[in-house]
Design a protein around this nucleic acid. Structure first.
Lengths: 216, 216, 216, 216
DNA sequence: TATGAATGAGACTTCATTCAT
DNA sequence: TATGAATGAAGTCTCATTCAT
C-alpha cells in the first residue's frame, strides 16, 4: 500500500532508475516554470535528454511523470526529516531545533513544494491516496517527536492536540513557500522561524496570561 | 490597481454583468469537479446556459473566466468577513468569535477555496498580482482587528507578530478545506475550531508556563 | 436494434447528413485504395473537403467512419436489391432474372464489397452485430423470393435448403469481386452469370440425371 | 515464381527455418485474436519466444511475417488436400468424399482461413501474386479431380464449367468459416456438407425437373 | 446580440525499425 | 547470433478561438 507501481517497458532496473532520475529532474524544472498541464511530454523528454519514444519506455502515461515527481519529492523531504528527527531527544528544546531545521529544509525546497501543492490534485483518483498517505506519514514523524516530549513531561497535550499541533507546524513549514509573495517581503527566513516558534509554543496571549513574568 | 479589466464585446453593461454571473456560477461548479484545465470552454458555456459563441462575447480568453471566478470568490469571502469584523469590539473575546466565524465560513466555502488554491497559479503573470492583492487585503482585515486588541491592551504584539498571527489564522481557516482528507477524519469542525483557538492564543506550552511562572 | 447511433457534435441534422455524405464518399475512395488501417483520418478529412477538426464534429472515433461506410454500402445494395425483388413474380424464371440482376449490381459495386469484406472485421465488437444483421436481412430478401417459388410449386426445397441456397447465391454475387483475380481472367460477367445460374439450378450432374428425360 | 524470398540476416538455414517456425506459430495465434494490424512486432517476438532484435534477424519488415504466415497456411491446407486427392478414383462418389473431406479440413482451420481472407490484402503488391498463385494451384487440384470424372464419363462439363465448379466448392469450403455467424447457428457441419453436396451436384431444380425418377 | 460550425495547432501515445553491445 | 534500449515519424483526437449568419 506504500508505493504505486509505474510500469516501464525497459527491464534493466538500474537503467530505469537512472532514466527516471533524468526525467524527474527535467520535469521538476519544467513544472516549476509552467505547471504540469502546460508542460508537454516532449518538453520533458527533451529536458531529460532523450527522445519522446524513450520517455515512453519508462512510463505509461503523462500522469505517471507527475506521480513520479511528487513521489520523489516526498521521499526527499521525508528522508531529510527522518534523518534529523532521529537525533531528537524528546525535549522541547530539541523539538524546536527540529522544527527550525524542517522550516529551513522546506524553504530550500519551496518550489518543489509549490509544485506538489498545485499539481497533486491532477493525479488520478488512483494515485492520490498513495501521495496523501506519504504526507500523513510525514506528519506522523512529528507526532512521534511531540509525543516523546509529552511522555517526558515537557509538554502537556492530549492525542488530538498533538495531531493538530503537528499539522500546524507542518503547514507552517510549507507556508513560507506557498505564501512567499506575502511573507518573504516582510520577514527573513530566520525571523519567520523565530516568530513562528514563539507563536507555536506560547500563542499570542502568553504575556497577558502569565500576568507577572516577562519572558524571552 | 484593484480590478483588472476583462474585455467584453458586448456594450450593455447590465447584460455583461448578468452573463458573467451565469458564466461564473457554471464555471465554479465545473472547476470544483474537474479543475480549470480539464474544464472546456464549451462546458462552461453550456453550464452557463448559452452558446460558446456568446461566451466569447463576454471574455477574450479562457483564462479570463478563471480570473473572473477567483475574483468573485475573493469578493464573496471578503464581503462576509468584512460584515462580521465590522462588529468586532477589539477584545480578545470578540476576536475569538470572529476567528471562529471565519473558520466556519471557510468550512462552508471549502470547495471554492480549494479551487482558488489549486488554480490560481494558472493565472497569467498579468492577472496574478490582482488576485494576490485581494488576499493581502483580506489578511489586512484581520490585522486591523488584532491591532485593535493590541491598542486596547488585550494583546501585546509588535507589527511583525500581528502580521504573522493574521497569516496563520488565515491559513488555518483554509486548512480545514485543503487538508480535509486528514483533518476531517479526526475532528469535527467545532472541535477543530476550539483546538485551533487554544493553540493560537496559548500555544503548546501554556500549561507548563502558567503552572509555575517563568520559563525558558 | 437496426441502426447504431454515431454521435455528432453538430446539431443540424441536414448538415450532419450532408457532411457525412462527403465523408463517406471520400473514405470509400481511400479505403478502396489502401484499406481502412492505412488511411489516416486527416486524409479522409481532406478527401471529404474539410478539416480534421470538422471531421471530428461529425464522428467520435475513426472507427465510426468505417461503420458509417459499411452501413451506407449495405443500405445502397439493399435498396437496389429490394427495388428489384419487389417486382419478382415468384417463378423460377423471375428468380433467375433477379439473381442475374443482383450479380450485375454486385459486379458494379465490387470494390465497395471488397472493402466491406476486408474491413468489416475491424469494427468493434460493439458495431459488428449491426452490420451482420444487415447482411442477414439481405440474405432474407432472397429467402423470401425463393420461398415464393416453393409456395408456387416451382421449386421443392425445405427451410434449410432455402436458406443455404440463398447464402450460396449471395456469396456467388460477391465472389465475382473478391475472386476477380481468378474469375475475371477467365469469364466475362455474363458468362459468369449464365454458368452460375446453371450450376445453382441444375448442379453438375444434371446431364447425367437427364439421361433419359429432357428438361428445360 | 513459386516462392518469394524473405531475406534473413542469419545464415544458418536450419536456424532460420526453426526461428521462423516459432515466429509463424506465435503470429498465427495473435493474428487470429487481433488481426495483422493490431498485432505488434514485439508481441510476435514475445509469442515466438525471442526478442524483437532477434525477430528482425529473420525478417526485413513486419509484412514479411504476414507473408510467411499466409504462405505457411496455404502450404498446410494444400498438403492435406493433396494427400487426400491422391487417393481419388475419378468417380463422382469419390469426388463427393473428397469435397466432404475438404469441407471438414477447412472447418478445422476456419480461423486460419479467416486470417488469410482478411489480411491477405495487406500484403504488398509485391507479395500478393505469390499468394494468389497458391490459391490458384489449390483450386487446380480440384479441377484435376473433376476433369478425371469428366474423362471417366461420370460428369459432363466443359472446361469453364469445371473451373467454376471448382471455385464454387472451394469457396463453399471457406464459407463455413467466414460466414459462421450465420451458418453455424443453423446447421451442423455435417448437415452443411450434405446440403452443399446436394446443391452442388443437383442444384435446386432437380426434383421438379426429374419429375418421376428418384435420384441420389 | 446570439449562434454554432469550422478551424488547425498541438497534445499524447504507439510502434516499426535500428544498432551498439 | 541475440538482445533490448533508443528513436522519431506518424497517428488519433481535443479544444480554444474565430467568424459568417
Amino acid at each position: 500500500m506504500d508505493r504505486r507501481e509505474v510500469q516501464a517497458s525497459v527491464k534493466d532496473e538500474r537503467l530505469v532508475e537512472k532514466r527516471r532520475d533524468q526525467m524527474i529532474k527535467g520535469a521538476i524544472t519544467l513544472f516549476k516554470q509552467k505547471g504540469f498541464h502546460r508542460t508537454t511530454t516532449r518538453e520533458i523528454a527533451r529536458a531529460a535528454g532523450f527522445s519522446i519514444g524513450t520517455l515512453y519506455e519508462y512510463i505509461r502515461k503523462k500522469e505517471d511523470i507527475l506521480y513520479l515527481v511528487v513521489d520523489r519529492m516526498y521521499d526527499q523531504i521525508r528522508e531529510r526529516l527522518q534523518e534529523d528527527l532521529a537525533t531528537n531527544l524528546g525535549t522541547v528544546e530539541s523539538l524546536k531545533l527540529s522544527i527550525a531545521y524542517y522550516f529551513r529544509e522546506m524553504a530550500e525546497m519551496q518550489e518543489e513544494v509549490l509544485v506538489m501543492y498545485q499539481e497533486a490534485k491532477s493525479l488520478s483518483k488512483d494515485a492520490l491516496p498513495y501521495v496523501l498517505n506519504k504526507e500523513i506519514q510525514m506528519v506522523g514523524l512529528f507526532e512521534n517527536v511531540i509525543e516523546n516530549c509529552v511522555r517526558n513531561g515537557e509538554l502537556d497535550l492530549d492525542e488530538k492536540q498533538i495531531k493538530l499541533f503537528a499539522h500546524n507546524l507542518f503547514v507552517e513549514g510549507q507556508m513560507w513557500g506557498f505564501r512567499r509573495w506575502a511573507l518573504q517581503k516582510v520577514y527573513t527566513l530566520e525571523e519567520y522561524i523565530d516568530l513562528q516558534l514563539e507563536l507555536l509554543f506560547y500563542g499570542v496571549q502568553r504575556k497577558v496570561n502569565q500576568g507577572t513574568g516577562g519572558e524571552r
